[in-house]
Write a protein that binds this DNA or RNA. Structure first.
Length: 548
RNA sequence: GGUCCCGUAGCUCAGGUGGAUAGAGCACAAGUUUCCUAAACUUGGUGCCGCAGGUUCGAAUCCUGCCGGGAUCACCA
């Protein structure tokens, strides 16, 4: 935003100097405020092609620009050849006015051009409850979807699940065993690789309540009932847990429909037709070795069942066929190995892999008193996402899961999360919003009028005001960057910086009761800040309480 | 062994396309409120940026090799 103000001037200056080629140079905000509001490395970039000293080039540029714009107060040469630019306060006044006009639309952008985006996340099979890692996946996916929505994309939130196959059999047999143990005692054998979670007992209990002892025989029909019961029980709770974090997906895509609708068959036929698959040892193999990967892999087992790769590939193809132009897949680090296979196959099928964006997030560990927590103290069972939501609430869970870059291992500090005080970073943000609400309320009571597009923003000259405006000016860049990087952490970090500038401003500058014009300008400023904070919190999926 | 992620302050982590004196939160210490919410603000300091080379005016950032931690490498999903 700031750079826009000066870049034209610089480009004109270069033309004046007879430099018409494009060179790579940047404007940036110096870390050290003594270096001005903006600085550019242009002179250093030109030193080599022009065969002159950076300082001399810088001086030439400065001579060209100086005095030509009332937006620039001063230009100086510093360090190895930087040009430091001191902007006139007018730049900030213009900027905050522009932001103020956006009102509640302030975090919205439209660079998405209605691109059809599919964000797939959570996607756990209905065999149990959600845990912390799933929580990270869910919050990431949901927030990425929010970001894309706010930037003008046409977003579909999707959940892909599989309620067939080995794991579901396993679930069914586990429920059956618990059911039988209930009737015949603890000696009834439990399947070796069964699901040991306590929740299986709950499911068995429900089955028992509903059917009594009628399902004692290990028949396919009865096992199928167990499976259904387990699936429904799990899905109900998964959805409920997600809803507690305000996560509601649009499409629940069942892997099974790929079979029912012949998508798997079609794909197999296509692979065969293209000579990409072959039979060996009764299995069907895909020639990944011809797609740039090292080894061929089985896609249909000798038993006739496909491996996970086949439906995964078919599913991606299906998403493209449904018209999506960008596929974002949110996976945990344990899925890392499947991605190259899918990508290679998708590419070979003629789709643009640039349009597939796998987001692999690292694991989460829950820490308490410096030690890893695996079991819930209260229940003695393994720690679920619901347990965490019970303890600290959705806002804290979401923020903690989002405040770190997805590709670093995340330590969830339970002690800090439990802290209902200023130590908790979530409250720091929400408090800024609540403070502004309160000020606005008081201002209205005192008879201040709020809707003033003609507010005299040029009166905002206190360093704390300028710093706050300066931070607010970054909002578009941040939202865009967070979206393109699929990195909510960028926004979370920005929000903290913005809240910090706000709190400093609040401390230094009174709003109500100062000179009328200044009061109007400051009210307009804090309302703008409030919109940014509130919208950012919304994008992150957090609430913005008006009072705290 | 191959592939991916990570290694930055006591701890947890940031570090837009390479830039000037590497930052924040927490923890620790001291202070600020007759005045719009003190869940706030102010002050205090610590870094072989894992190691070693390379690229260049300039590297925490890019390249190569190594070391350490995590994940993953099925006719399991």
């Amino acid at each position: 935003m700031k750079a826009k103000v000066v870049s034209d001037l610089f480009e004109k200056a270069l033309v004046q100097m007879g430099i018409n080629d494009k060179y790579d140079f940047v404007f940036e905000t110096p870390k050290n405020p003594e270096h001005g509001d903006l600085s550019t490395n242009i002179a250093m970039r030109l030193a080599k092609p022009m065969k002159k000293k950076p300082a001399d080039i810088a001086q030439e540029i400065i001579d060209q620009i100086k005095g030509k714009s009332d937006l620039i107060e001063d230009l100086t040469i510093a360090g190895p050849g930087f040009i430091n630019i001191k902007l006139s306060p007018k730049v900030y006044a213009n900027a905050i006015k522009e932001l103020y006009k956006k009102g509640e639309n302030i975090c919205r952008q439209d660079f998405g051009n209605k691109l059809k985006v599919n964000v797939e996340y959570v996607s756990v099979n209905p065999t149990g409850l959600l845990h912390l890692g799933h929580g990270r996946n869910a919050c990431l996916g949901d927030t990425i979807a929010n970001l894309y929505e706010w930037t003008g994309h046409d977003v579909t939130r999707e959940y892909y699940f599989n309620n067939a196959g080995n794991q579901m059999n396993n679930l069914a047999q586990s429920v059956y065993a618990r059911y039988m143990q209930k009737i015949e005692g603890e000696d009834f054998p439990f399947p070796e690789n069964g699901y040991h979670g306590e929740y299986i007992k709950e499911i068995a209990e429900e089955v028992h309540q509903q059917h009594g002892e009628a399902l004692k025989e290990n028949t396919p029909e009865n096992i199928n009932l167990m499976r259904k019961a387990g699936e429904e029980w799990s899905f109900k709770r998964i959805k409920a847990t997600l809803a507690r974090m305000s996560i509601n997906q649009d499409v629940f895509y069942n892997e099974d429909s790929l079979y029912k609708e012949g998508k798997i068959k079609n794909l197999l036929a296509l692979f065969e037709e293209k000579g990409l698959s072959y039979k060996k040892d009764d299995a069907t193999w895909l020639r990944f070795s011809e797609m740039g990967l090292s080894d061929d892999r089985v896609i249909v087992k000798s038993t006739g069942e496909p491996t996970y790769r086949l439906p995964d590939i078919a599913y991606h193809r299906e998403k493209f066929e449904r018209g999506f132009e960008l596929l974002i897949d949110v996976f945990g680090a344990d899925h890392i190995a499947t991605i190259p296979d899918v990508m290679a196959a998708v590419k070979y099928l003629g789709y643009d892999t640039e349009r597939v964006r796998p987001i692999i997030h690292q694991f989460v560990t829950l820490m308490e008193n410096g030690e890893q927590v695996k079991m819930s103290k209260r229940t003695g069972k393994s720690y679920t996402l619901d347990d965490l939501l019970d303890e600290v609430g959705s806002d804290v869970v979401r923020f903690f899961l989002l405040m770190r870059s997805f590709n670093t291992h995340l330590e969830f500090d339970l002690d800090l999360a439990r802290e209902q005080s200023e130590k908790n970073p979530v409250f720091y943000l929400q408090y800024a919003n609540a403070r502004i609400s309160s000020v606005i309320e008081n201002a209205i009571e005192a008879g201040a009028k709020l809707d003033d597009e003609n507010a005299k923003f040029e009166l905002l000259t206190h360093p704390s005001e300028l710093n706050l405006i300066n931070e607010a000016m970054n909002v578009d860049r941040i939202i865009k960057s967070a979206t393109q990087k699929c990195e909510p952490q960028v926004l979370a970090d920005y929000l903290r910086a913005l809240a910090s500038e706000f709190h400093k401003f609040y401390h230094d500058c009174r709003i109500i009761g100062v000179d009328a014009d200044l009061q109007t300008a400051r009210l307009a400023l804090v309302r703008t800040i409030k919109h940014i904070i509130k919208n950012s919190l919304t994008i992150l999926g957090l609430s913005s309480p008006e009072r705290m």
